[in-house]
């Protein structure tokens, strides 16, 4: 399934505000380093994400670029 939270890792400053406000604890600080030397945030549980957008709202660095919700296909 496509990612519900699109992250621009290069812009992330590892402030952890998104991790803190996430009601489902589906975000975490990764082990990777971005060019600025920060460990960018990652969505590790796409299934558990409810697309609430809190991470997008609190992110000060435009690192959470987009939040999406799967469209229910009517049968």
């Amino acid at each position: 399934m496509d990612k519900k939270v699109i992250i621009n890792e290069e812009r992330c400053k590892s402030c952890e505000l998104c991790v803190d406000v996430c009601p489902k604890d589906v975000l975490r600080i990764s082990e990777r380093l971005n060019p600025k030397g920060y460990h960018p945030v990652e969505l590790f549980d796409n299934e558990g994400c409810i697309s609430c957008g809190f991470c997008f709202l609190i992110c000060p660095d435009a690192a959470i670029v987009e939040v999406r919700r799967p469209v229910k296909v009517k049968k």
Partner: peptide
């Protein structure tokens, strides 16, 4: 996927 929030 439906976009709910997107960087302006």
């Amino acid at each position: 996927m439906k976009t709910l929030y997107k960087m302006p």
